Simulated assay, not measured.
Amino acid sequence: MVADGIVSAYPVDPEDGPPVGISKDDALTLKALMSPVKGALGYSLEDARQLYLKERIGVGEDPRRHAARNRLAKLFVRAEAGGLPASTLLVDLTRQQARDVRDHMLTYEKPGGGKVAPASVKRDLTIMKAMIGHAIREFDLIKAAHNPFEALEVGISSGGEEDIAARELKETLPDAVIAAMRGNLQGELNLIWGLGSRHARLSH
Rank of each mutant, 00 (worst) to 15 (best):
K54Y: 02
L28A: 11
L141M: 10
V37S: 08
K170I: 13
E188V: 12
K54D: 13
I127G: 01
G183K: 12
L51Y: 02
Y43Q: 13
L195W: 04
A151D: 15
S87L: 04
V91I: 14
K129S: 09
Y43M: 14
W193M: 12
E80A: 12
I142V: 15
L89K: 05
Q96R: 13
Y108D: 02
V20P: 05
G42V: 14
D103I: 09
E162W: 07
I178V: 15
M181H: 06
M131P: 02
E138M: 09
H104E: 07
R167W: 05
V2Y: 00
I57P: 00
L90M: 13
M128D: 02
A130N: 10
P14H: 06
L141R: 13
D103N: 06
V154L: 00
R69I: 04
S35Q: 13
A151H: 14
E46N: 10
G114F: 06
N184S: 11
L30E: 04
A117F: 04
S23E: 09
R167Y: 03
G196Q: 07
Q97P: 06
E109G: 03
T29Y: 04
A135Q: 06
T107C: 00
A68Y: 03
L185K: 04
S23V: 11
G114M: 05
R95V: 14
N184K: 10
A144I: 15
G114K: 08
Y43H: 15
K31V: 03
Y43D: 13
K170P: 00
L33F: 14
T94S: 07
T94V: 06
D4E: 03
V177T: 10
A135C: 11
D47E: 08
R65Q: 09
H66P: 00
G39Q: 10
Q186L: 05
G194R: 01
L28F: 14
A9S: 08
S157V: 08
A40V: 15
L90T: 14
D13I: 15
R95W: 11
R102L: 01
R65P: 01
K24W: 07
D26W: 12
K38Y: 15
A86R: 06
E109T: 11
A135G: 03
V2Q: 01
D4F: 11
G39W: 13
R99W: 04
T94K: 03
W193S: 02
R56L: 09
A117C: 00
